[in-house]
């Protein structure tokens, strides 16, 4: 049974169809990369997955239960799914450590000392041990995004959603964040991530989905998508983002 399965998902804003008949299944330890141009629906798909948006049709199942049922308590679902945003969205009035212990302590009922131990352990692993008592705005962008990753993982989620987490970073800082994501992927973390980092997607993904105008036009293992894309639209997209590389020869 899949950890997460989406079928026939549809989402509109007014007349605008943002996601159209999207189907996707995520197995344990999968790393799914969503690629596609801006406005293709990657972020909306992620937001639908942890119920930040009400969907207009289709079914989302998580851990064997339909979570797109309006009677499902969204907080129960979100307790099991972590999310990291493009703009970090750390709480500026709390220190890094407090950002990381807020949910474990308040939502999961973990004792504060325990939550702090867990947070410090993760901060250490992510190279932020000495930033714990600082406020987020004192940190660099890369450090903030790493802190946001720690915050999302402090609650032991079974699935991590990453929404273009390196899009707001300096190129030289992108590496430090992606390194961590890669390390977590190798530790077996299940992830769905929207990204523009093609090299990273190619390297880390177990499956790549190309979204175009709200549809998953094509999906498959990275070698296949990047070297032998089936669809003309995919080839066109890859030509633009990977100049002189895969897709151009096809």
């Amino acid at each position: 049974m899949s950890l997460l399965s989406v079928s026939g998902l549809r989402k509109c804003y007014g007349d605008k169809v943002v996601l159209d008949d999207v189907s996707l299944s995520v197995e344990q330890h999968d790393v799914i990369c969503l690629i596609g141009s801006s406005g293709s629906g990657k972020s909306t798909l992620l937001r639908c997955l942890n119920l930040l948006e009400d969907i207009d049709d289709g079914v989302i199942e998580f851990e064997g239960r339909e979570i797109s049922d309006p009677r499902v308590d969204a907080r129960d679902v979100r307790k099991r799914i972590g999310m990291v945003f493009q703009a970090y969205n750390l709480f500026p009035h709390l220190t890094v450590l407090e950002n990381c212990t807020l949910a474990p302590h308040r939502v999961h009922g973990v004792r504060r000392a325990e939550a702090e131990d867990r947070a410090r352990e993760l901060l250490e692993r992510f190279g932020l041990a000495d930033q714990a008592t600082k406020h987020p705005d004192r940190l660099s962008g890369g450090q903030q995004q790493r802190a946001a990753l720690v915050r999302a993982m402090c609650t032991h989620p079974t699935l991590l959603l990453l929404d273009e987490i390196t899009a707001a970073l300096d190129p030289e800082l992108v590496g430090e964040v992606l390194e961590i994501v890669r390390a977590e992927a190798e530790r077996g973390m299940t992830m769905v991530l929207a990204t523009h980092e093609m090299a990273f997607a190619r390297d880390v993904a177990t499956r790549v989905c190309f979204l175009d105008q709200g549809r998953i036009l094509e999906q498959g293992p990275p070698e296949e998508i990047f070297t032998h894309p089936r669809e003309e639209r995919t080839r066109h997209f890859l030509r633009r983002v990977l100049p002189g590389q895969a897709g151009s020869s096809a």
């Binding site: 026939g8 549809r10 169809v17 159209d20 207009d56 049709d57 289709g58 079914v59 797109s68 049922d69 309006p70 009677r71």
Partner: peptide
Amino acid sequence: MIDWSPSQHELERRQVRRRIR
């Protein structure tokens, strides 16, 4: 867009949402 009509499941879901409201 025009050829789409809500699935049975979605219709039921709408009914549930209406009941909750």
